[in-house]
Computed example of a mutant assay.
Amino acid sequence: MFLVTPDPIHGLVAAPRSPEDLTPGTEETLTAQGFTWNSDIEAYTRPTDHSSEAVDRTAGALRELGHYVFSAHAAVSRLTAPAPSLRPNRTTPMRPLELAELLTAPTEHPVREALRELAPGNWTRWSSRHWRPPEAWRQVLVSRVKAFAAGQPGDGRPAVAAYFTTTERRAADGMRLGWSPFVAALSDTEAIPDLRPTRTTVTAVPVGEAALAEEVFADPELTAALNRLAVLDPPDHGDILRVHLPTRAVTRIST
C-alpha cells in the first residue's frame, strides 16, 4: 500500500506502508520517475513536478504494479493527528506513513468518521478508484485470462482452466514469494496438469532482469491482480493458482 501526495517540504511523496511494498519493480519504477529514497520520512520523494497530474501518474503506475494506493492532490502535512507522547489536546503534523497506516483500517476511528463525511459522489469515486475487495481482484484475473485464452491458436475447443505457478522476487526485507504473471498451463479439460519441476537448474539472473521481463511482456492488469492476491493469501512453494473459466472460480492448490 502506498500514499502518494504533494508535500510543502519534500515535493511529491510516495510513502509505502511497509518494506514489503518496496518490490524491485516498484523501486525501479519510482527511480525511473525521478524519485529518491528519503530515510528520514521513510518514503520516496521528488522535489520537482508535484502537480495533481503528477500525483495521478505516479499513483496509476503503482496501481499497475498491484499496490493499493491512496492519493491526495493537497498536502497531507496540513492534517494533524494526536501525538501519543503528548496530552490529548496536543497535536503534531501527520506524516504520510502515519496516514497510510490509518487508511489500512477504514472501519476504525478516525478513518471511519472521515469516510462518513464524504459526499456520495466523492465516496463513489474514491471506492471505485482506490479499493477493491479480494473477489474483485479475482474477477479481474479471470477476465484477463479469458482475454489471453481467446487470443491463443488451437483446435477450436474452449479453454477450461489456466494455471499459474509461484516465483520469488527480491523485496526490501529479502525474498518474497508470489505468483508468476505468465500462464504456466492452459487446459481444455478439467484435469489438473502436473506442474511440478522434474529437475532444478540454478541460473544467475542479473538484478532487475526478471522485473524488466514482467514490465515488457506481462499483462499489467493480470500482474496487478496476481500481486494483490499473493498479498491477501500468500502462496507456499509448490502451490498452483487455478483459474476455472466456466465458473470464474480462482483456487489456490497446495501440491
Rank of each mutant, 00 (worst) to 15 (best):
V76C: 00
R125T: 15
A61S: 06
V111C: 11
L102N: 09
A224T: 05
S71V: 10
A83F: 10
F164A: 03
A100V: 04
T92M: 06
M1V: 08
R132M: 14
L222G: 00
V111A: 08
R116K: 14
R248C: 08
T203E: 13
E101K: 11
N122M: 07
F182Y: 14
D233M: 09
S128W: 02
P197H: 12
P246I: 14
P8G: 08
A83V: 15
R242H: 07
W123H: 11
A171L: 01
R242S: 12
G154H: 01
V216E: 12
P24S: 09
T198F: 05
R138I: 09
R252W: 05
D188V: 08
R90D: 14
A249C: 04
S254G: 14
R242K: 08
P153I: 03
A159D: 06
T251Q: 11
P235L: 01
V160K: 13
T80P: 02
T203Y: 05
T91Q: 15
L186D: 01
G121V: 04
L212D: 15
L212T: 15
G154W: 05
M1I: 10
P197G: 06
A204Y: 10
R228D: 14
T200M: 08
V243C: 07
A161P: 05
D194K: 10
E64I: 05
E64N: 06
H73T: 15
H50Y: 01
T166A: 07
L30V: 01
T223N: 03
K146A: 09
S180V: 09
P206S: 07
L115Y: 05
L99C: 03
L22D: 04
E108W: 10
V160T: 12
S77T: 13
R90W: 15
A150K: 05
I240D: 02
H67T: 06
P106L: 01
T203W: 06
R242W: 00
R57Q: 05
A61Q: 07
P120H: 08
E53V: 07
E101D: 13
A159R: 04
T200I: 07
A185W: 08
T80E: 11
T45A: 11
L62H: 00
W123D: 11
H244S: 14
E190H: 03
V76R: 02
S127M: 12
L79M: 10
R57I: 09
D7S: 15
T58H: 00
L97M: 07
L226M: 14
A249I: 08
S52T: 12
F70M: 09
P206Y: 00
I41D: 07
W37A: 08
T104W: 11
T48Y: 02
V140L: 13
V216S: 04
R125D: 14
R199K: 13
A213E: 13
W137M: 05
V183A: 08
V4S: 03
A114V: 04
V250K: 01
A105W: 11
A204F: 14
N38L: 12
A147H: 06
G66I: 04
